[in-house]
Simulated assay, not measured.
Amino acid sequence: MAAYFSTFLVIVTLISGVIWALDAWLWAPKRKARLAAAKAKTQELTEEAQATILRESGVVETAKSIFPVIAFVTILRSFLWEPFQIPSGSMMPTLLVGDFILVEKFAYGIKDPVWRTKLVDTGEPQRGDIFVFKYPEDETVDYIKRVVGLPGDRIIYRNKQLYIQQACHEQTPCPQPELISHTEVSRGDFLQDGVPLLRYHEQLGEVKHDILINPLRPEPTAYYYQQPGTTEGEYLVPEGMYFAMGDNRDNSTDSRFWGFVPEANLVGRAVCIWISFEFDRKPDDFLPHWVPSGVRFDRIGGLE
């Protein structure tokens, strides 16, 4: 849907811009010429008659009205920031259902809004970033996860423990896989099917954040993506790709299940929550379930 909306914005901007330009360079001078000719024929041309001669068509008037606004929105949304809504709990506790976030579109390169060709290289994802990308198996769908593995990294996820062997370039010997340690914060702040979830502090690169683990849910290794040449739960990140995981580790469909995120699929980096709504309505409530039941003002701000 977001991709279609971007294309729609570009088309409307182009059409309204072309109409505005044609009027400025072609039609408006013709109207002024007709007015001058009418004045030459009679010296008693009323203001109403002059206004009628100079009057723009409805299409031109509409195009000139919407072009500045739609062009501004297109530039803002395509190259600077785009709003997204969090639809699922895969990034809990960092992001909750009902959070509305801003994504910095220029963080990983400036791309054209239709074909998504990179025009200017502005940076690359860093370990620990929260990023939005086009789901590799259906690029009409936007996903949001956390960057865990960079190109060349070896990622191991086994017994709900995360190990990272950073890319070995010219180092001798290569670094050993490092266990990303967890420090328990609490248990029971969040529930999954009535099971209290364990909340841990985790640090990826320079980023400190919290994750959730369901202690009663077995690891679904049978559904893990099997990369040729690696063992179960082990992934070697190819060049130009990234390994993504959700913070809600036992409730996230991520790179463990479908593989890697190509650089071409990157949309941008999530930078802040600009508003957060609660949707806590009972079946017998008068208002429909999609109407917010409250605003979580304490969640507004930057992301880690």
Score class of each variant (00 low, 15 high):
209 H>P: 03
140 T>C: 08
185 V>L: 12
185 V>E: 13
17 G>P: 02
240 G>P: 01
73 V>Q: 09
299 R>A: 13
293 S>Y: 11
105 K>C: 10
102 L>M: 13
129 D>P: 00
89 G>D: 08
94 T>D: 04
158 R>H: 13
255 S>Q: 00
187 R>G: 07
114 V>C: 02
233 G>N: 01
273 I>L: 01
256 R>G: 04
151 P>E: 01
242 Y>A: 04
23 D>M: 05
254 D>P: 02
68 P>V: 10
26 L>H: 09
42 T>G: 15
25 W>R: 13
246 G>H: 07
84 F>P: 00
276 S>N: 03
127 R>E: 02
252 S>Q: 02
23 D>A: 06
174 C>I: 02
49 A>I: 09
110 I>H: 08
145 K>S: 01
115 W>R: 14
238 P>L: 04
245 M>L: 10
230 T>M: 14
162 L>M: 08
140 T>L: 10
7 T>F: 00
264 A>N: 11
129 D>V: 09
129 D>E: 03
97 V>C: 10
196 P>G: 04
43 Q>M: 15
204 L>H: 09
5 F>T: 15
153 D>E: 06
262 P>C: 04
116 R>Q: 11
295 V>F: 07
188 G>C: 04
222 A>C: 07
36 A>Y: 08
253 T>Y: 11
48 E>Q: 15
107 A>Q: 06
21 A>E: 05
47 E>W: 14
71 A>V: 09
283 P>R: 13
78 S>T: 10
13 T>K: 08
278 E>S: 15
80 L>K: 07
39 K>E: 14
222 A>Q: 12
196 P>Y: 05
99 D>A: 03
202 E>P: 06
56 E>H: 09
